[in-house]
Write a protein that binds this DNA or RNA. Sequence first.
DNA 1: ATTGAGCGGGACGAAAATTGTCCAGCTTGA
DNA 2: TCAAGCTGGACAATTTTCGTCCCGCTCAAT
Lengths: 347, 347
Amino acid sequence: MDPLTEAKKKLMPEMTDLLKKRYQILQTIQMEEPIGRRTLSELAGMTERDIRKETDLLRSQQLIEAKTAGMAISPQGLEVLEALKEFMREMSGLSNMEKQLKVILGISQVLILPQDSDDIPAVKTKIGKEAARLLEMKFPLHKKIAVTGGSTMAAISKEISSEKRDRSLQFIAARGGLGEDVLHQANTIASLFAEKTGGAVKTLYLPDHLSAEAYEMMMREPVIKEMMELYDETDVVVHGIGNAEEIALHRKSSPEEVEMIRSGGAVSEAFGYYFDNEGNVVYRIRTAGIQMEQVQKARAILAVAGGRSKAKAILSYFNIAPRQTVLITDEGAARKIIELTTKQEEF
Amino acid sequence: MDPLTEAKKKLMPEMTDLLKKRYQILQTIQMEEPIGRRTLSELAGMTERDIRKETDLLRSQQLIEAKTAGMAISPQGLEVLEALKEFMREMSGLSNMEKQLKVILGISQVLILPQDSDDIPAVKTKIGKEAARLLEMKFPLHKKIAVTGGSTMAAISKEISSEKRDRSLQFIAARGGLGEDVLHQANTIASLFAEKTGGAVKTLYLPDHLSAEAYEMMMREPVIKEMMELYDETDVVVHGIGNAEEIALHRKSSPEEVEMIRSGGAVSEAFGYYFDNEGNVVYRIRTAGIQMEQVQKARAILAVAGGRSKAKAILSYFNIAPRQTVLITDEGAARKIIELTTKQEEF
DNA sequence: ATTGAGCGGGACGAAAATTGTCCAGCTTGA
DNA sequence: TCAAGCTGGACAATTTTCGTCCCGCTCAAT
């Protein structure tokens, strides 16, 4: 750390906590505006009185405005938030946690965003924004991009800038299957990416859970073969990481599938593969989709998943994640991952 | 100001004052150690309780140590002080005051050190140290240095480093006269400089206040003539600025001299010249010494004077100070000068 | 050897700030 | 039209801060 900052910390030990507290409040207000004291105190885990004291201060500094519907951030507040972004990343240990996660997960880049998307839904938007920015950086060099489905992926598609259009981009749905709500299907997401960027899209609608024979037969179809060849040429893969448990509960999976997941000890899901705690593939949805080996060959891989509830799934998947994978996650997931792994070490 | 610092200030408005307060306390402890709460509270202008609260904090941070003789700064405390030096200069407005003084005094460089040497004698040492550093920077290029007397000049001589010796340096007493205590005479000071640096010294012992005839006669003496020629070749002049009033009181001046000073409205003194509020020469000690015109020709001039009591004298002298003069002073003098000049503007 | 000024730390009642907790009156979205 | 959620005001209870005094100690000057 900066020797100047270090010296200030020595002279003003209260500073650190106070700054963190106020920054977090301001941040939460930004994400949840308009928001009231009571809701805010729950989200921030502080007493209402404390929140009130601090918001009074923030208001007197004109960083927030109090309307009848609740408190909202002011333009100046946004500036302050932006100016302190990097500093707070150091201060609150996010940078440090990124380093730890790199080691734990065996990859070379990790990006952690503040707060927990399990508590504050808007954190997902922030994750989406950062993932979108990282992805956009790949566009000039890498044109063939495979994307999966899920709410996290949907968040990214919303944040992709439609400023710089590039007709040479090609987005490929990483799974032919339907599986989820239309809005969160890989096909839909790929189309959204294409629309935003002005690029092309390659989709494929094919039922999940085919019988073995039907699957074999379909694989021989030209249109499917073409898709599989496209996967071979994929430059970038962008995918979410699913929580096997959640998926088994929420989605209308076949009872057979659920049983396979349960008995196999599946913890995480990505591109239609299910992994157990050690990263072994315990099940795979039978549909056209990118193969693990094809993912391995990709130049860049963005894995996006946030919220402490995803910690176990992330740990599971990263047992076999390619080294070139970049993880974009949030503080909640990161803390939980570190907690889980260091606890194991203690015993 | 740094946008990061600006943002922190917005989020933590208390920070500024608190930092200033603690820094000042730590600074004062450093200069006056060992020092007790009561003495400290007087120097810092705070209540004893306040001082106690803050010193308790500083001690818990191990920046100071409490011995039976009083509190003293710790090595870590020194580090903190050093690390924050430049930052605090900005924060407490010293940098800003330097800019103001440049305009007010019509010179291109001003250096202001914290606190007031009228309150804390050790500030004089700091001034001496900085002046010494500035002077040392001139040594490689400028070899002939004229120095005056006075306690401020003595402080500089104490702080001149004896590390890098330079036999080509030549120190010249700017005044032949005695005038003051032996220890503070120009001759003595010049000798001290020479001793520290390994350079040569040119001194001249000649009574002050000669009669007009005696003075004329002396001026024709070869040894004096030689001295006057040396003044012509002077590269650097280092001088203090005296308070005419104080000089008239303290020194055993001739009643005639005191009367001249009083009736002429003398405010400041430098190199044996007395100046009034407008910078007119109202009196001059009759002794061999550097001439105003010779000072004007010098490449570099360091004027050194601190303490709010010197403010009027500084203002008076800088009416006629050459543009190449650099002023080294302290916060006390600087504030007073600004106060005096802005008050005049208001009416 | 003695003394006294100056020191840190303990103590404590008075005063001030903080805290938890209400409520009134408002807007807004259903 | 109503209910939910919001701000800002209020206030007693509690905690913290503040001013002040004292004690025992050290150390330098006498």
